[in-house]
Design a protein around this nucleic acid. Structure first.
Lengths: 221, 221
DNA sequence: GTCTATAACAAGATAGAC
DNA sequence: GTCTATCTTGTTATAGAC
């Protein structure tokens, strides 16, 4: 194993990305200065602009680095399920497991940074920063469209708007699930420490319960 | 109706709070400058420090103004339910409805600013800003303790950690539900515009489905 | 209570030496 | 590719006139 033959240049990018991921997660985009990032990464202040062009572009790269792969894996799993089903609609639970299971697997990777990234992602959803809003929408477009289409086919009797909302609710629950494992939160300190696999099965059971819940009364006309 | 007899001083505080609430929701704490707030409020820049002491204290006051009442109402509803039950455990669905129903009612108040506030609140949960973390924990402590105790009594056969997590998941779903009504989001543009009452019943049905879901397999020992 | 002016500092970005 | 030094702008906060 080469120790630091290539400690420069190629490594600098990664060091910056790792530091940025962790700091953006902790302090948010506006709360994280470039000086803080380069300080933690052990690189020069000017390196961010040299390697990424700007703070915003660095932020985007932090997401692209992991998100592209995550959504590719999601789609691959969905492809496999659909191939296996041979034209028949999938079970809703399989679809949900494919989408959220991949995310939870990434979140379980504490060493490799997947955990930090998924927390950052959850946090960013509710941070309506203009430039990242559009970026995330593009990055997710294909994956979300594929999964929604699969759910529409799997639940033809359910109004599409209802499916959309439930999918959205599930994203919220997952986001909090990941954030809650060691973050702030009103309930912090009340949780026993427990392994991510246990959490994943807790969440999945909750999500499927919500997805299968009886439809709401549309209310009085 | 008096037009602007008291346009000063007492009104200035409210104007600042309203502007701050809306801007903090849109741009976050760090992304919102005092110049922006005072500009939108139509008051002088120095007014924030005069009336609130600092930007941080203003932020806290934005929350206190609405949160204290919200949690008081929640507790009042719980008190009424428990009085009615006369010592018997409550139905879990009633407890959940009390807690989230009050929040949803506030979120439905678009005119009065409750909607903006609830979106800000949901966003702030995932923003682990040190000073607001502690503040929110204190502001919520009594209410959360009361509702958790009620749930523990209502579901004695369910492991407490499981209840804690499901409560947490529900908070996440609610947060996204409120944010998603007109915010960013990957699914934005896909939602038909619809009234908040409809959304509330959609969410409640999802939450109860999740709460009632079969317990997860603890997994292999 | 409200205002102007400004102090004191931190931010992102870049020019130019090495 | 990396560094230092610096430019420009924007930030919170406050002193002091009105």
């Amino acid at each position: 194993m080469r120790e630091d033959t290539s400690k420069n240049s190629i490594d600098t990018r990664s060091r910056i990305l790792d530091a940025a991921e962790s700091l953006f997660m902790e302090y948010g985009f506006d709360g994280t200065s470039m000086r803080l990032i380069t300080g933690q990464a052990g690189v020069n202040l000017a390196a961010i602009n040299y390697h990424f062009g700007s703070k915003e572009l660095l932020f985007q790269e932090v997401f692209r680095r992991r998100l592209t792969d995550l959504n590719r894996r999601r789609i691959a799993v969905l492809d496999a399920l659909e191939a296996e089903a041979g034209g028949a609609p999938l079970k809703p639970s399989r679809i949900v497991e494919a989408f959220f299971g991949e995310a939870l697997r990434m979140a379980a990777d504490v060493e490799g940074g997947g955990h930090t990234f998924m927390r950052l992602l959850g946090r960013t959803y509710t941070e309506p920063n203009d430039f990242v809003r559009q970026f995330l929408a593009e990055e997710y477009a294909e994956c979300v469209d594929r999964f929604l289409a699969a759910l529409y086919r799997a639940l033809p009797e359910v109004e599409r708007t209802e499916i959309l909302w439930r999918f959205h609710f599930m994203m919220g629950a997952m986001s909090y699930a990941i954030a809650g494992t060691d973050a702030l939160q009103l309930l912090a300190g009340k949780f026993d420490d427990e392994d991510p696999a246990r959490l994943a099965s807790r969440l999945m059971s909750f999500l499927l319960g919500g997805l299968r819940a009886p439809l709401a009364d549309p209310g009085p006309a």
